[in-house]
Amino acid sequence: MSDRSKQSASVVVEAIDVHKSFGTLDVLKGINLTVRKGEVVCLLGPSGSGKSTFLRCINHLETMTSGRIVVDGQLIGYHERGDELLEMSGKELAVQRRDIGMVFQRFNLFAHQDVLTNISQAPILNRGKSRDQAVARAKQLMKMVDLEGREGAYPYQLSGGQQQRVAIARALAMEPKLMLFDEPTSALDPELVGEVLSVMRKLADEGMTMIVVTHEMSFARDVADRVVFMDQGVVVEEGTARDVIDNPQQERTRAFLRRMH
């Protein structure tokens, strides 16, 4: 998709003035973000800047203190009644989360299931897929993440990089409209980072809408349509990778980038 068509594409995620505090600690102090269909947005920032917390608010793994997040036209996590936002039940949240894929820093593959079950169980349970359909799709996805033939393996038999690629396949099996990546390569040995990033690159090329929390500057520079730099719970700077990474305007961004190199 060209940059211009992305600008006019429909909005997938709209976050408005998202606040989050743990007790007296303000982690998010009013985050605004719009992500359009097919866009890849990278969230950068020092640890503790709130980028992971914000990402987890998008599928309501984390509750927010105030603000609103709309994904594909649906208000996430709450029913709007008059001037109140009522939190949804676990079942209703589950339905909303089926359209939002998530990949975790520590993979979180289901340890008691083989790879095939890890990928195919959720579509069978919650997408009404037949077993045959789900298994066929799982095998396709395993091919896409370059792990053809490892369907019978258990997570503990795989390397970190392989586990993370299975985790990506598992999330994709639900046919999400949006993929969230929470530092997907931070728990990997350096030589395994590349194989995961190349799968993510492939996904971006196929037009998947992605929000990626990462410390991989080269990935952000090459793949991201937009880079958002966060620090201390606010968006400090936002723009194309070239603007933010190569020509930062804010001193805080510059200081962070100096530390990264």
Binding site: A94, M102, N108, F110, A111, H112, A122, L125, N126
Partner: peptide, 27 residues
């Protein structure tokens, strides 16, 4: 059982009962 297991189940759209019976309890 590692807390990440329940989170992954939630993120995949498992209901709380499904997450308990299929992911957390078997482990």
């Amino acid at each position: 059982v590692d807390g990440g297991q329940g989170e992954a189940a939630k993120a995949l759209g498992y209901t709380p009962a499904q997450a308990m019976l299929r992911i957390i309890f078997p482990q």
